[in-house]
């Protein structure tokens, strides 16, 4: 536990020592603001909720989150510090979790910094703050899932660009499997059970249901299992890589 925190602390320092964390936070805030207010027309809607804000998160994260996570293990491999890290008295699992938590903190900081939008909507109307909280929770879980996927792809290669692209592709797949334009296309020829089965694998389906304010344990469980599965695969990849 202590080693996990020590590793997380070092990683966090790394994120903030390099411009990665700042660039991510600033770009995320700018884009979130742009999409919410300019594209989705937050004010014009005249609704006291944050649907316009949250609906863009799956797409924003698609490119920004892998950019945060791509260095997680590939950098460690490129520099050879993985040899240092894994010969210290820690289990690979502790290192994987520590690194993952640090990147999750970076993304969460950006998410927390969007609080002015909550203040605005409360100032203008009477929103259901429970739903807004659920939205934030869902967004954070979704970011965590993308990060875990990035951790996995970054363990596959010492090249950060490859790691980034792989993470984007996998995340895109997880979005599209439940993205209405795609599912509609599928329903025209595939049986309903198949379409629904595929959609059940999508972050879209679960994120949207959390956003509605219903904190179904299945949705939370979905994100947690994506995280657990990806991190477990990360450990398998790291072990396989070490074994030669």
């Amino acid at each position: 536990m202590k080693s996990t925190l020590t590793i997380a602390k070092r990683e966090l320092l790394g994120y903030f020592a390099s411009p990665v964390a700042f660039v991510f936070i600033v770009i995320f805030l700018l884009l979130a603001g742009f999409f919410t207010f300019m594209v989705a027309g937050f004010f014009e809607r005249g609704e006291a909720n944050l649907a316009a804000f949250f609906s863009w998160h799956p797409w924003l994260y698609l490119f920004l989150v892998p950019a945060v996570g791509m260095r997680m293990w590939s950098e460690e491999r490129r520099l050879g510090t993985i040899e240092l890290l894994l010969t210290m008295p820690v289990t690979p699992w502790q290192a994987i979790v520590g690194k993952f938590l640090a990147s999750w903190v970076v993304v969460s900081v950006a998410l927390v910094l969007t609080f002015p939008v909550v203040i605005t909507v409360n100032y203008l109307g009477n929103p259901d703050n429970g739903v807004i909280f659920a939205g934030y929770l869902g967004s954070m879980l979704m970011a965590g899932s993308y990060l875990a996927i990035s951790a996995m792809t970054s363990a596959m290669t010492r090249n950060q660009v490859v790691s980034f692209i792989l993470a984007v592709v996998i995340s895109l797949f997880l979005i599209l499997a439940g993205f209405p334009p795609v599912t509609n296309l599928l329903t025209s020829w595939a049986p309903t059970w198949l379409v629904e089965g595929v959609a059940a694998f999508s972050v879209m389906t679960h994120f949207e249901s959390i956003q509605k304010g219903v904190l179904d344990s299945r949705d939370v469980l979905y994100f947690l299992s994506v995280i657990a599965f990806s991190l477990f695969t990360t450990s398998v990849i790291i072990r396989a890589h070490r074994a030669g």
Binding site: R10, L13, G14, A17, S18, L79, G80, T81, E83, L84
Partner: peptide, 11 residues
């Protein structure tokens, strides 16, 4: 001390 003495450059 591994070969090539790796360390974290940003620290």
């Amino acid at each position: 001390l591994p070969e090539n003495a790796p360390s974290y450059p940003d620290m």
